[in-house]
Design a protein around this nucleic acid. Structure first.
Lengths: 229, 229
DNA sequence: CAACGTAATTTTGAATTCATAATTAAGTCA
DNA sequence: TGACTTAATTATGAATTCAAAATTACGTTG
């Protein structure tokens, strides 16, 4: 699908969906808090109509919850949600690995190899922010190689929901080390174009991530016993 | 999650999303045609604001396409889309089968058994409409037994997209017979709580469905050479 | 002074309005 | 007649307005 010639005209509400997603992922809008409609309208210089349209779309992605007559609230990442989302994400990533092995071209494998090296470097530098960015890029590159737009959309929507839990702030040294090991395997199976093995590895990778996030959520909960802000 | 006590207050835009989905699934809004904004506002007795909010959400589900300054269009089911969606749906249904086997209770298996019997009856009566409704109920029952709301939402969103292609109108006798056979296996593995086998069967079932829909789409295309309405 | 009830204020949901873009219709000229 | 311009009409996107609901502030009473 070549869109290089197409003039991309972005509608206002679509632009706002992007902005709101960024605000939520950067924790500028914090989980559990109310979405300040008026303030955002002022900040973005738009009226309430397009902002409210964007909020409806955000709600369909599960990033905000609309309470009738009470406004929009940034959703919390709960244990239940994590236990639901990661298995689904695992199945989708496994599929993406399988498809990628069948369709990836050599140049793309080299790209992933480069990203992988960068990721290892970030790990050695203990640069968590850089690590997570490259990590995402790797998963995204595999997704791209799968050549399935629906799969990409579904995966990214679910990833987004999990990224609200800023678990990147807390990943144990041993988990981090394991994750890098898993990524070694991922690269290996991808380069060998072994779809079944890659799928299996990605599935395990996701489950380990799930366990890690759950552990972090529990530690968070125990830190602040009151559920209320 | 017990919501029996909760007062469910549905917002207008949410109600409209439901109505629009129904209109599209019933082909009262035909794929490729423009969504008649004004007409729908009159019919539903609402202003453009909530209707347009609903259309934005519909677009996020891929049921309509928003063309800036040109309005909303009901999306067509294309071959490319079918080739994309069914593999994803297959992976998700496979997961739902696996989870269902781990979590389903005896009473639910009996429910599925009853539905299955109804489905076979519909097949023997060659009642395609009834068959498809019960078919859907079976898939839904397995999904419910998986106890994963995220999985349910994802599956149903993708199913919805495929249901726009009213392929139920045309299913060959041999495909129909095969589908019933596949469902026999599905029931068997579910009753035996054999997650791996059920996943495998559902995956194959989805792929056969994909092939059937593709075949139908091609026959449609050859019938009316002009792509335009 | 704590709990309740009432009034003022703010926020929300949805209709309306308005500027702009797209489409259609009409007119012009080769 | 048919291609191209230009004007009229319609539809779209977004701001504004308005009624209703929720929240807050205040006062009253036991």
């Amino acid at each position: 699908m070549d869109t290089s010639q197409t003039i991309v005209r972005k509608s206002l509400h679509h632009e706002l969906v992007d902005r709101l997603q960024t605000l939520i992922l950067n924790s500028e809008l914090k989980p559990g808090t109310k979405v300040p409609e008026k303030l955002l309208c002022d900040q973005f210089g738009v009226s309430r109509t397009p902002l409210r349209e964007a909020l409806k779309v955000m709600a369909s992605y599960g990033l905000v919850r609309l309470e009738p007559n009470r406004g929009a609230w940034v959703t919390q990442v709960t244990e239940e949600e994590v236990e639901e989302v990661f298995p689904v994400l695992g199945a989708l990533e496994a599929l993406s690995g399988q498809l990628a092995c069948a369709r990836i071209i050599d140049a793309e494998i080299e790209e992933v190899r480069t990203l992988h090296a960068q990721m290892v470097q970030s790990y050695e530098n203990r640069d968590l922010d850089a690590y997570f960015i490259v990590n995402q890029q790797i998963h995204r590159a595999i997704l791209m190689a799968a050549r399935n737009g629906t799969l990409t959309t579904s995966c990214e929507a679910l990833s987004l929901r999990m990224q609200r839990a800023r678990y990147l702030a807390n990943m144990s040294e041993s988990r981090w080390s394991d994750a890098v090991q898993e990524h070694e395997k991922i690269l290996h199976h991808l380069a060998a174009r072994d779809g079944a093995k890659l799928a299996e590895t990605l599935l395990h990778h996701m489950d380990a991530k799930r366990a890690s996030v759950i552990k972090w959520l529990r530690s968070q909960r125990d830190d602040s016993p009151s559920g209320l802000a």
